[in-house]
Design a protein around this nucleic acid. Sequence first.
DNA 1: GTTAAATGTATTATCAATGATACAGCTTTC
DNA 2: GAAAGCTGTATCATTGATAATACATTTAAC
Lengths: 267, 267
Amino acid sequence: MQMGGGARMPAGAKSRRVYLSLLEQISAGRLEPRQKLPGEEQLAEDYGVSRVTVRRALDALAENGFLSRRAGSGTRVRPRPSAPQPVTMDFSTLLPQLVEIGRSTEVRLLSSRMDAAPEHVARALDLAPGETVQIAQRTRSIGGTAYSHLTTYVPSRIAVGISDEDLSREPLHVLLERNGVQIADARQSVSATLAGPEVASALGLPEGAALLSLDRVVRDTEGRGVEFLTGLYRPDMFRLDMSLARVDHGQGRHWEPAITPLKDTPR
Amino acid sequence: MQMGGGARMPAGAKSRRVYLSLLEQISAGRLEPRQKLPGEEQLAEDYGVSRVTVRRALDALAENGFLSRRAGSGTRVRPRPSAPQPVTMDFSTLLPQLVEIGRSTEVRLLSSRMDAAPEHVARALDLAPGETVQIAQRTRSIGGTAYSHLTTYVPSRIAVGISDEDLSREPLHVLLERNGVQIADARQSVSATLAGPEVASALGLPEGAALLSLDRVVRDTEGRGVEFLTGLYRPDMFRLDMSLARVDHGQGRHWEPAITPLKDTPR
DNA sequence: GTTAAATGTATTATCAATGATACAGCTTTC
DNA sequence: GAAAGCTGTATCATTGATAATACATTTAAC
């Protein structure tokens, strides 16, 4: 399931409603690939809107690769939405660095500055109120398409000597370890959000598209917070995969993560 | 970060733009709790829209608990958006059954029927074309609020004897094991989507809200697919947490999942 | 070929969202 | 208490989305 919302969404309220409804049915598989949709007239009646409105929704869906339309023939569900093998994060990497299959990512540094830590960051890292952090925003791209938008916060006393070039080359925790920081553990939390204007334009998505969001707090061996990361990922280009094994030891069966690298992911 | 979109969103395009922009800034922490926003007039100028439009956005944000407004005084970011301790899924459970803290979930069976497997399900479970599956849709609620919408597909030859009452009481894999199925492993994939009309109404969200989506394929000891699940979760009520440890063994340091139960999650 | 059914295109009318403006009422500050 | 700054409310003009309709064009079936 990967109905990220696509690269374009109808502006109006009703056409968007139809758009989302059809998208939901396609993603859930209730509309099979290659299946012919009801005619525009029929859909208009079903949804209680005019044909023009249905049209806007269908046009957007077609433009985003979910449908293929042919005058005279009809509108059909496209076998595979343009999904160029998404980047995956799995249990063998655990950090959202991709399973490289001969592909490499380009990093773009959008901005970096020193500033007072936002409250939720200060709380997560146990910083003194008003303490300054290095705030950097980056995008990661693959094949010229940005698939993630990262914002990192590092206490300024730790970030000394990390240059902009460093930031656009190495993962942050590598830079930190180079600085002598003893990274001990991290906590991540995955959720979902809507794309706001800034992120949307950075990732080439419409505002209001669905994004996977990941927050991470990294601590050193003394329990001090050394990095706070907030990452937003395009769901059509990034997935978090995990394999589980059902094991039976002692009292009752339960699940365990399978760390073994996954086989090919045809999906 | 948990800007799910809230329970109401402005209808128009521009007001939604402002709504999402502000929501993004609040969620990202660029607008601090208790911080006073610029006046409506100022915001209108900033965004290049009229005050009425800004107003619609602010009203919606206030209604959804992100802002508090007082005539004469101003509009402020609310200290804590209504976030009643979200349900979490972590590495000790690995399946989205919640970390129970004295709370229990209610399951509601929306529908269950036998039907031909959708193509993507048949492919994932290695079914013969046209093979029938039991399709069940359920919601899970906590404290009366639905936080997840689940659709499960079980090959009908396996699902024999699973009644509707069973479905609304037990997790599916428990029922399957009761039926003698030897569950061996599962693969899960997490992503994000937008709420379509059906799911939106089932979860009490506006259409177009962001959702965490999870697909799962469960196989038995002989590698046959026995369950396909597609789950949609409210990001403001459900998070996927994981702890990682940075370990140093042999060649180079790397990350490993920390299975140890998490401490309290104050967040 | 003819026909039926579908998408493509255009026109005009209607309605909802937005813009511009004015003013009333509440809060804080001095 | 006066002033400044803000939100709340109303009005009317304007713009954009939607509705209704008609007709052209493409495709598939017979």
